[in-house]
Design a protein around this nucleic acid. Structure first.
Lengths: 203, 203
DNA sequence: ACCTGAACACCGTTCAAGT
DNA sequence: ACCTGAACACCGTTCAAGT
């Protein structure tokens, strides 16, 4: 054989890095592989599936950096926050990564590995809340940092006026929201208390 | 004159309703207006701008249904939650509305009217957190409900297995997340206390 | 099994020329 | 000022035919 499915995904990741999500066309991926556009459809049924595979790769090595001795719920919330941080880092590491992951995740929210891990720590409602916030903030961050680069290239004076944001300011902004949510998770009330083990369905 | 800018936006909203965001092409909007594609560029510089105008229209009449006697912060948080609910309703009211608004908002987070109102109630960090959650949840909701309709048309048996979600279940899910965040906003700690009047910059 | 060649049915955007 | 006609440089996807 000449090309495998993972060759296609690897090529797509390369094109994503050099041309961004908007420029990541099937035809360009094919060109990167030195192959005709139609050839891709032997390895992948359509573009949407290819994007989902890319999203999986971006998120692949997002792991909680703490061992699972979840006794107090304060500890669990802390682990969940760390997992969100790792997820955010993974998405920001690749060009337009947040958009790729968020788009693919929208289709199957409730079915991802990271969400399951979060749900085990802080319950399903907490997991959704954290995940949606993390996706949204990362997308916004990436859009703004990219706009800043673009503005710098054009020499746009408005850039400093409307978007005087740097990476560290956005980091702090992310942390603030995370603090609000985790505070709400600890505050009791309507927040579901997670089972310390797995949930009933592993599907 | 034959067509104004608002005619173009109105036509775009019609096309959005009948064909969805994916099918909302400049050429189709032009056809709806009985005009050549190039004619649109007399009223709008590009498609991105048209989408932003559509987003403005979708969100236009999102107003807080409570008067501004913000004395206790519990009251302010409640108003903020109600504003998020109104925003969500407005987005869900039109086909793919959440995607349209979220895409347009990503470009200028920190510059929208609704965000400013939220910030006045619960501070900038709280506003961002609520807004990103509301966008993300609404997008996910709309994607899933649409997938359910599609599955029903195709008669896909997996629909019931993987996505047994209805509108009310998603409503409850939204409320749960909102409860977590507002609980965090009230919990004090790192949440910024809003000024009861305006912030320093009205820009 | 994997790929080529070629087509089909589309896109957003530009721009001279008309009225 | 607003629009036509026509083009430019692209898309995703399909499919007979080759090896």
């Amino acid at each position: 054989m000449r090309n495998s499915r993972s060759d296609v995904v690897a090529a797509a990741m390369r094109v994503l890095d050099t041309h961004g999500l908007e420029g990541c066309s099937m035809r360009r991926v094919a060109a990167d592989l030195g192959v005709q556009p139609g050839a891709l459809y032997h390895h992948v049924p359509n573009k949407q599936t290819l994007l989902a595979l890319m999203a999986d790769e971006i998120v692949a090595d997002v792991v909680p950096d703490a061992d699972p001795h979840t006794t107090t719920s304060a500890r669990a919330t802390d682990d969940a926050v760390r997992l969100c941080r790792a997820l955010r880092d993974a998405m920001l590491r690749v060009r337009d990564g947040a958009d790729v992951v968020a788009t693919a995740a929208a289709f199957r929210l409730g079915a991802s590995r990271v969400e399951a891990e979060l749900a085990a720590l802080v319950g399903p409602a907490g997991a959704r809340t954290l995940l949606l916030y993390t996706f949204g903030h990362a997308q916004s961050t990436q859009t703004r940092l990219q706009a800043r680069v673009f503005g710098a290239l054009v020499g746009d004076a408005d850039t400093l006026e409307t978007g005087d944001v740097d990476a560290t300011a956005l980091d702090i902004s992310f942390t603030e929201g995370l603090a609000i949510i985790s505070c709400g998770l600890l505050g009791g009330g309507s927040a579901t208390i997670p089972h310390s083990g797995q949930s009933e369905s592993a599907g």
